[in-house]
Design a protein around this nucleic acid. Sequence first.
DNA 1: ATGTCAGATGCAATCTGA
Length: 289
Amino acid sequence: MRLSTWNVNSVKQRLPRLLPWLDERRPDVVCLQETKLADGAFDALLSGPLAERGYEVAAHGEAQWNGVAILSRVGLDDVVAGLPGGPGFPHQEARAVAATCGGVRVVSVYVPNGREPDSDHYRYKLDWLATLRDIVAAGDPATTVVLGDVNIAPTDDDVFDPAAYAGHTHVTAPERAALAELQGVGLHDVVRDRWPDARVFTYWDYRAGMFHKDLGMRIDLVLAGDAVADRVKAAWVDRQARKGKGPSDHAPVIVDLDEAPDGDIGPVVPPPSAPAAPRGTAKLPQSRN
DNA sequence: ATGTCAGATGCAATCTGA
């Protein structure tokens, strides 16, 4: 099962990149952030193209800002929009949606930016993260995976130059402590675990050729509970999607899971557009393993 | 030199958010 997360910075503007990306990468579960569309507009724009590709959709958006979604072709059950009981600014915003997909509790999150350290928005960010932690802890963390734009670089290795961010959000100790508290319920940063010493970023500012110079941050994470993390076979950032014409300022993160230990790999079906293999013409040699 | 985008307002150019 292939999981992914992508802050698309307006799903409307990103449609010419999103649909070809779905066809190329064929993720089973896609967590989107910054969709910037109300649910009705999301449905009008995307229900057709996504249904063609076999995806069910749980969108949780608002008119202009924020907005998250989960696309799944391995089931989409028990959808919860938002963080029940969570803080607002001043009202609750569309920053989280959860669903059970292929036996995994998937949570798509767009953590508040924080704007300036010690600002009201910064305190809102910390409160929001504490609520997310409580909600994950109250469920079954082992079978949960939190994916999304957390707007925090976990360590100094996750920014191109720690000095460049001194005094700014995304790197402060309280933010990193709040993220560590979330991970403390039993979630593994599977991309960093796979690439402990690599320079890995997921976001590059549009300005000043930052992507070209690879001056970015790793702020889009896949945080997986024990049972999910144990199944990780690949975990990487799709930098290709940040290149070319009309990209988001974030790249997608892709994580492949091996089949579940109990043999239930979920309702894995061939992609609708993939030609069926002709019967009785298998060419691959038989192998014991 | 906040150098780029995206959304809104409201029709051009400027504001906000990231």
